[in-house]
Structure formats: C-alpha cells, structure tokens
Design a protein around this nucleic acid. Structure first.
Lengths: 373, 373
DNA sequence: CCTGGTCATGAATCATGCG
DNA sequence: CCGCATGATTCATGACCAG
C-alpha cells in the first residue's frame, strides 16, 4: 500500500534544514521534495479543484459570475490531475512525521480523486469533514441542488500510528461539552477578512475563511507544531498558525500571492495565552467556542461572574481560566462558586461599552438571531 | 472516457424484457448484465462500504462465509473493491437511459473510490449531497470527530445530456421557497421504521431511512419512472418508489433480505395523488405576437420597462420599437438596458386602469388560463 | 447615529427547442 | 448537427448611500 517509508531519514550526511515561518516561492513539487523528511506535524492542502468550467455564467440580472479561470486550475485530463495529485501527496507524506496528519479540502469536482489518491499513497483516513456554508452562491439556472458545502479529508501518515494529535477534550469544550461532529457550519470568506486590491477586486479567487483553519489547527496541532501548506495562496494557513502560536511553512508558486501573504502575516499578532483544555458539562445549541471563533468574545478578554464577582480569561478554544481553575464556562463557573454545577451562560458577563456588563447568554441570543436571520 | 455507449441498443433480435416492480435474487453483476439497455430512469446504489480491510478473509467470488455476517462487506484490497465497483457502475450506465441519473451513497471508507470510478466510467457528476445525521453514533474512543454524515453522489449517465430529470420547483417549494441545498439533515433509520425480527434484532445492518429515498425520488424522477437498486437489501428503495407511484427493480443476493423486502412491499399503499409542483410539464409557448393579435395588447400601445424605465411602442407583428432599437420584446429589452440578454416578459409593462403597470408575463398567464378553459 | 433601500458578489463543472 | 431565437433563473452578506 505504502509506496515509500514515512518520515524516512535520509542517508545523506547533509540533511535539508528544518524550516519555520517561511514562504517558499516556486513549484510545490520542487519545494516539497527539498523538505527535511519527518519534519512536519500537520499539512493543510487546498489544491486546484480542476473545475472544468466551460463558458460563462450569468446571474438572472445578467451580471457575470467571476469564475475560476486561472491557468493553475486547468488540467488536460483526469489522468493528468491524478498524476499531479499523487506526486504532491507522496512528497507530503515523506515530509510528515509518522504520526503527522494531513488535511485536504476539495469539492465534488476533485475530492473523490484526491481521496482515492490519499488512500493509495498510504495515508489512513480518520474523518471526512463537511464544511456546510451558511451563504453559498445560489444555483442560478435551477438545474441542480445549490452546491452548499465543501469536503475535507483528515488522514494520518501511517495507519499504525495511533498517537496522532487530536485535542478531543478541547474540541468537546469548544462544542459546549458535546463531541465535535464531522459537519462544520461556517460562512464563506467575505467582508473585512477578504483580501482586496485598491479597486476592490478579490486578491485570490478561493481565499478560505480563517475560522476554518482555526478549527483545524486547534483540533490537530499543539502550540509550537509546524503546519505545512503547499498551496499557500494569500496565506490564511500561515495567518491562523501564527496567531495560534504554531509555526508554518508555505509554498506558493505565484510571487504576487506570496507577497500579499508576507504582508498579511506581518500584521498578525499571536495570542498571549495558547492554553487549551476540555471539560465536561451541559449541552447547548450554540457552543461558547463559536462565540470566540466569530469574535463576539475576544481571546484574552475578561469574564466577570455577576457584580463584583470572580474574574476569568477567555482562551483560544473557548475554555476559560480563573485562578487555578480552567475548563468550560460551566465548569469554571461551578468551581469558583464552589458549586457542583453552574450554567456558565447565565453566570458570566463581558464588559462592553462604558463598562456595562453583558451576560454571555445575551451574546448567545444575539448570535442565534444572527444565524437564524 | 466512456468505456461503452450509454443505453446502447443491442443487435440481438431478442432483447431482454423490460422489468417493473421485480426483486431479482442473485448476484448484482449477473442481473445487471441481463437488464435491457437504456431501460432505467434512475438508479440508487447503496454498495458495500468496505468497512473492514482484512486480506486473510478474502473470498474470490464474495460468496457468504458461514459464521461471518458481514462477508459481503469484505474485500481483500482497495484494488479488489475498485474492480467490483467499476463493474457494477459500468453495467448500471448501460442499463440507464442516456439522460438517466445515478445516486450512490457511501462513507469516507469507500465514497472516494466510488466517486473516482463514477467519473472514470463516464458519468457526469451533478452534485454531491451530504446526509447530515441528527442522531449519529458517538465516537466512543474519543480519537476522532463524531462521524455524523454520509455522502451521496448524483450523476447523469451522459455528460452531454442536459435533459435529466430535476424537479427544481418541487424541491424549492419543499424547502419553503428557497433553493434546495446540497446538505440534507435527517435522522437515521430507527423506531417503528427499523425492521426487526421477533427477538428485536435489526434485520439489516445498514437500513436507510425512507425520508432519504423519498427526497431522492421526489427530486429526480417522474411518476411512472423505473428506479433500479442493485443492492436492494430490505427494500427501502422499492417501498418509497411504490408509495410515490414509481416502478422499481431491485437486485439482492441474500434470499432472506429479499423475502423481508417482498413482505414489506406488499404492505405499501401508493399515494392517491402524485402531483408535484410543476408536474404539469412545460406550459404551452405563447408568442408575444399572439397577445397583440388577440387584442390583449393594442398596436401602438406604450410599454414601460420597470419603474420610470424606458418606453417602447407595440407594432402590428408583435415587434416593438424604442428609440432606434426595434425587434422582439427580448431583443429591445436587452438593447435599452445595454445587456446581452433580457427576458422581455418579466421586464416590460403595460398601463391598465388608473395607470397601474401590469407585467406582460401576467397578461401571458391570463391568456394561458383563457386558452386552457 | 440608526434605518432602510440598493447594489455587488461568492471554488459553478448552471438551457431548450426549432428550423 | 449547428445556429439562433426564446426565455428561465438567485441567497446571504456586506458596502454604500440617502433620509
């Protein structure tokens, strides 16, 4: 099954140097081949989708849809796409630690071919994850279902390794103490997060939302791990990795994209506190982690338990810490009040304009309304 | 790309008989090969998921191994599974009408291999659909995300055919007048619907919910169409097809499953009324000239494009003129808006009593009703 | 400052029938 | 089979502007 050993040490005396926080400009295959074997903790790949678009598409109001017509997304045949896919997958597997994991994202145009190649290359699939989009582009001609999701594959380099990183308790805490599921509902990348040029045109046709990478990196890496992205684009993977205190290695063939990524990364300030932890508690429809991910509550922000009550700090995975207590808003709320249980939603407040205390439950209600609207 | 013609007519004088509402007991490949080419409207396949890869338990003909309940789900290798998959996919494509469509369901264990084979066999993928489970089995070991979805692929037999059946209006109405999306949230099959033996044990390990098949058949078939299921199991596809007034052909290698399906189907009572939104078919075309001829719009009358929009005059042959532009309502509509195309019916208005603007499309609707009466 | 209307746009494999 | 005319078809979100 495996075509080559995973993370094999080279017999050469001179090994490739370990990289960290580098953007390598050039061909992905060349740069991947030069990476030190067994040096990467996690790879995230957003490869060309091979969309095979034919002709233009217009909205009902006759405006033209800006499709992906870039040369890098065109392949002569499925066979050529498969050859390309198997090459970069093989090189990534070589660069990964044996217990390292790979994430790949794709749509129905390519994900089946990619998934087959992932298995044939010797990876062992752990999950497929569907990114359910809250705001996909409609189907303008009414000939199919609205294409409202993309698929991610999560796989470990070596099937026999069970010591891959999965922050189970962290993800469970993120999801308000319910196991995190394989369906992730997130909006597409738009608004201030979407990189645009002076004329307002999008800098990259397929920029991914940071929230998606945030969840991937929170789930499958530890602080200090190195994340490899062979199709770096405008650097979403690097931005999230840096913010979360992880290293990154990005490969991008387009120098313009690489320059944009470089500038973007310079503006990223890592979080001070990178601690994650999970804890058990009560189920809720909107996890606290979602409020943090969406920015309604900031990482590092102070929570106040009632008037002049205990204080706690918000952390990256939606866990909080108060003194020596850490865990979900519910667990820590219970601990600081010396109770057996506590509904964190109706206990903790955040300070908003003019120092007013706002209950977390009210923020949750606001987010519910936002998501329902 | 295509290995054989789609729905090819045989040169033999004696053609296989058309089947309807039959359960064929035996090997799927044998029975598929005997189907009349081009006789099937839609196929739904729930193939073995290849959950367990155990080379030691390989059986060349995949016949049932005594004492091993799930022998039908075991394959010696990915290669063996691929060969099997490509065989039945090729035979289904042959049995389908050229504008017929295929649905396949699978999990991350097999869906990528199946999807690749679907493409390589010559099918053209229309959508992938994710069945998001409201009540999935939890991940007991806490080493992965809860596997909370399965994936369906919907594909047309011949890429060049755009006249496959998709009941767009029907599905949009189903979804409260919003386009139906590619993510379907449904519970797993349980409760009274789950077939159980006298001891309460489930009759089939992977019985699919009828709601899933209901949506598939509603979306992609018309009453009277024939639905083929080569892995019939306990007959969910047949049950839903019968209830919705569609025919079915089921193939099942396990005689016990087939017997359960037979009994189940005997108890299904078809709906009396099978009407769906838009099931009347395409309404009769009414040229604009006919409205003028019938006097619903007067020669010389003024058309108004939208609110305070451009004006045009109606002429004897149903052409209109606006400034220097003349031609059909569509051509002139496009010209005055400086667009490449325009639906004149939903752009131009006429003034009626008290100066109210009435859309041409509404006049057309009224004339249709008048002609039908 | 808030509200409501308008407009732009997002990884998209997005017609059909007649001559 | 090709060419051309007809005419069917959109949801969520954010930016911007007017009041």
């Amino acid at each position: 099954m495996s075509e080559q050993s995973v993370g094999a040490s080279t017999s050469r005396a001179l090994r490739p140097p370990l990289l960290r926080d580098e953007i390598l400009v050039g061909d992905a295959l060349d740069h991947l081949a030069a990476l030190a074997p067994g040096s990467i903790d996690v790879a995230f790949a957003d490869p060309p989708y091979n969309l095979q678009l034919d002709g233009d598409l217009y909205r009902p109001n006759q405006t033209k849809v800006a499709g992906v017509d870039d040369a890098w997304d065109r392949f002569a045949s499925f066979e050529e796409y498969d050859r390309f896919t198997r090459r970069w997958l093989g090189l990534i597997r070589r660069a990964l630690k044996p217990n390292g994991t790979l994430w790949v994202i794709g749509s129905y145009h390519n994900i089946f071919r990619v998934g087959t190649a992932v298995q044939d290359t010797g990876f062992w699939i752990l999950n497929d994850v569907v990114w359910v989009k809250t705001n996909p582009m409609p189907n303008f001609r009414g000939r199919r279902f609205t294409n409202a999701h993309e698929t991610l594959i999560w796989a470990v380099a070596d099937q026999s390794r069970t010591d891959y990183v999965f922050n189970y308790r962290s993800m469970k805490t993120f999801n308000d103490d319910l196991q995190h599921r394989s369906d992730w509902t997130l909006p597409i990348c738009s608004g201030a997060e979407r990189l645009r040029d002076a004329a307002g045109a999008k800098q990259h046709p397929t920029q991914k939302p940071e929230a998606l990478l945030n969840r991937i990196i929170l789930a499958s890496t530890r602080p200090g791990d190195v994340v490899l992205d062979p199709f770096f684009g405008t650097g979403t993977t690097g931005a999230v990795a840096k913010r979360l205190g992880r290293g990154f290695v990005g490969i991008e063939r387009d120098a313009d994209y690489a320059a944009i990524a470089e500038e973007r990364l310079a503006g990223i300030v890592p979080y001070d506190d990178l601690a994650q932890v999970g804890s058990e508690g009560r189920p809720k429809r909107i996890p606290f982690g979602l409020l943090v991910e969406a920015g309604h509550v900031k990482v590092g922000e102070e929570l106040v338990g009632g008037r002049d009550g205990p204080r706690a700090q918000v952390r990256v995975d939606g866990s909080i810490r108060s003194g020596e207590h850490e865990g979900s808003i519910h667990k820590v709320g219970a601990a600081v009040r010396n109770l057996s249980a506590c509904n964190g939603w109706t206990f903790w407040h955040v300070k908003r304009n003019r120092g007013d205390l706002v209950l977390l439950d009210d923020l949750r209600q606001a987010m519910r309304r936002q998501m329902a609207a």
